[in-house]
């Protein structure tokens, strides 16, 4: 009888020791993922910053679209300003925009008219935003995201440098990409490139006028992938500075597929953000007195 209890004791001891070892070896933590998440939260909490956002799409190495935007924003004041440039092949257009005094102001590069839109949905948005910023809610959301990410957390690699900065790298290829993400991502890209949705812009002529761009024409040049569309690779690279701020990050989606003529395409969609001027950015304002103004009701109308 004693022998049996002893065997139980030995088993429980060895087993618990192994479990404890794994806990000390950091089984529950994913350093890279946690560091990235913390830095994202810290960055989001900063009141003002200048963000340079670049969105680009390449097809077999040729750049089809490049949208680069510089946004200065101040969350406390509720103001923002920025410039954007869209390049699509030979077509190129610049914009500037401001968010001030409860209005959105927008001007396309070649035009001298300032489009002003009363931010009537602002209050509604504020509520919505507040709900999203509610700490309890975001904590819950964070858990859901964590759970969905699951073991992919471990794919986030962290490299810490001596100066306190660190780099995060995550790369998912082939079977590492969850099937659902692959299917949804492939569908999304295929539909996005199809040009079907560009037509919509025609009906909203105010937008077309305001942008000064022929969106369907741009979309025309996108590869129309009709078969074997597949999300091949997702790659994330981020730099975290010594203050736990994501100073730059870049995410690439590589999608492959064939068009109706059977030609293979490799489309790389890249989003890159560089953040500077933390806590020290004052958005530009525009004095509208004496300028040509056109009041836009709401694009959704």
């Amino acid at each position: 009888m004693k022998k049996k209890v002893m065997m139980l004791g030995v088993g429980l001891t060895i087993g618990s020791a192994l479990v404890a070892t794994s806990a000390f070896a950091g089984i529950g933590e994913a350093k890279g993922y946690e560091a990235y998440k913390t830095a994202l939260k810290t960055t989001a909490a900063v009141a003002s910053s200048t963000d340079r956002v670049t969105l680009s799409m390449r097809d077999n190495g040729t750049e089809l679209l490049n949208v680069s935007t510089t946004v200065k924003s101040d969350q406390t004041a509720g103001t923002a300003s920025g410039q954007a440039e869209i390049k699509a092949g030979s077509v190129s257009q610049t914009f500037e925009f401001y968010q001030q005094d409860g209005k959105h102001v927008f001007k396309a590069g070649g035009s001298d008219t300032y489009e002003v839109m009363e931010d009537r949905s602002r209050e509604e948005w504020k509520e919505h935003e507040q709900a999203l910023r509610d700490p309890a809610f975001s904590a819950e959301m964070e858990k859901v995201v964590d759970a969905l990410v699951g073991n992919l957390k471990n794919q986030f690699d962290i490299q810490s440098e001596a100066d306190g900065t660190s780099t995060i790298d995550a790369k998912l290829t082939g079977s590492e990409i969850p099937a659902a993400v692959n299917v949804i991502g492939s569908l999304f890209v295929k539909e996005g490139l199809s040009g079907k949705h560009a037509d919509r812009w025609d009906r909203h002529s105010p937008a077309k006028d305001a942008l000064g761009l022929d969106i369907p024409q741009i979309a025309e040049r996108f590869p129309k992938l009709t078969q074997d569309v597949n999300l091949d690779e997702i790659e994330l690279h981020a730099v975290i500075d010594e203050n736990d701020i994501v100073s730059s990050q870049e995410i690439d989606f590589t999608v492959s597929g064939k068009d109706a003529s059977g030609k293979s395409h490799e489309v790389v969609i890249r989003a890159a953000v560089e953040t500077t001027g933390l806590g020290a950015t004052t958005p530009d304002t525009i004095d509208l007195t004496g300028k040509k103004i056109e009041t836009v009701k709401d694009m959704r109308d």
């Binding site: 082939g174 079977s175 099937a179 692959n182 295929k190 009709t226 074997d228 569309v229 597929g257």
Partner: peptide
């Protein structure tokens, strides 16, 4: 739909 969803290898 035209999406590969999986490579045979995956």
């Amino acid at each position: 739909v035209g999406i590969a969803a999986f490579s045979g290898a995956d």
